[in-house]
C-alpha cells in the first residue's frame, strides 16, 4: 500500500502541474477519475469544489488548503451544503478532474438545474467572503493592523493595489 500511495502522490503532483487551461470550458459529463477508483465522500467533494471554484492558483496551494480547512470547520459555512445536499455536492464534484485549482470557466448548460443552482450559490458564497475578496483584490489580510494608515488612498497600479 505504501508504494502505491507514493506513486499516487507523484501522479497527483504531475496532474496538478498541468495547465489549468486543460480543464476549462470542458463538457462536464461525470468525470471518471483514473487515479481514484472510489467515490469521494461528501466532505471531500465539497473540499474539491472550493478549491476549483476559488481564486487560488497552484502556487497558492498552501493558502488554498488553509482556507478550505477553515471553511470546513465551521457549521455556518457547510450547513447549506452538507448534509442537506450531499448527493448534489458529490455529483457536481464528480464532473471535474481531481486536483484542479482556480478553474477559469464552467459551461452551465451542461449541468442539471439543481447542480447549477448549487454551483451558483457556492460561487456567490465564496466570493462574498472577506478572505476571498481580499485575495482577489490583493488587499492585506483583514484584521491585521497596518503600518501605513493611508493605504486606502493609494492608486492601484496595473489594476492591482
Amino acid at each position: 500500500m505504501k508504494n502505491y500511495d507514493l506513486k499516487r502522490r507523484q501522479f497527483l503532483r504531475l496532474l496538478m502541474s498541468l495547465p489549468v487551461g486543460l480543464v476549462i470550458g470542458c463538457d462536464l459529463r461525470p468525470y471518471e477519475s483514473l487515479v481514484y477508483a472510489r467515490t469521494l465522500t461528501p466532505e471531500e467533494s465539497l473540499r474539491k469544489l472550493i478549491l476549483l471554484l476559488g481564486p487560488w492558483s497552484a502556487t497558492d496551494r498552501e493558502k488554498a488548503e488553509d482556507f478550505v480547512r477553515r471553511f470546513l470547520r465551521a457549521k455556518h459555512n457547510i450547513d447549506p451544503y452538507l448534509p442537506v445536499s450531499s448527493e448534489l455536492v458529490q455529483s457536481l464534484a464528480s464532473r471535474f478532474p481531481d486536483g484542479t485549482l482556480a478553474i477559469k470557466e464552467i459551461v452551465l448548460q451542461s449541468l442539471p438545474t439543481k447542480e447549477k443552482e448549487l454551483l451558483m450559490n457556492m460561487v456567490k458564497h465564496l466570493y462574498s467572503l472577506i478572505d476571498v475578496r481580499s485575495e482577489v483584490s490583493e488587499w492585506p489580510p483583514w484584521g491585521e493592523c497596518l503600518t501605513d494608515e493611508t493605504w486606502h488612498t493609494r492608486a492601484p497600479v496595473l489594476g492591482k493595489i
Binding site: 459551461v107 460561487v123 482577489v136
Partner: peptide
C-alpha cells in the same frame, strides 16, 4: 454586503460562468 450575489451573475456570458471574469469584477 454579499457582493458576489450580483457579481456572479454579471460574470455569466452565453450560459458560461467565467470565474476568471468574476475574479476581475470583485476588485
Amino acid at each position: 454586503i454579499p457582493i458576489a450575489d450580483d457579481a456572479a451573475m454579471w460574470a455569466i456570458r452565453d450560459d458560461t460562468l467565467s470565474l476568471e471574469a468574476l475574479r476581475g469584477i470583485i476588485p
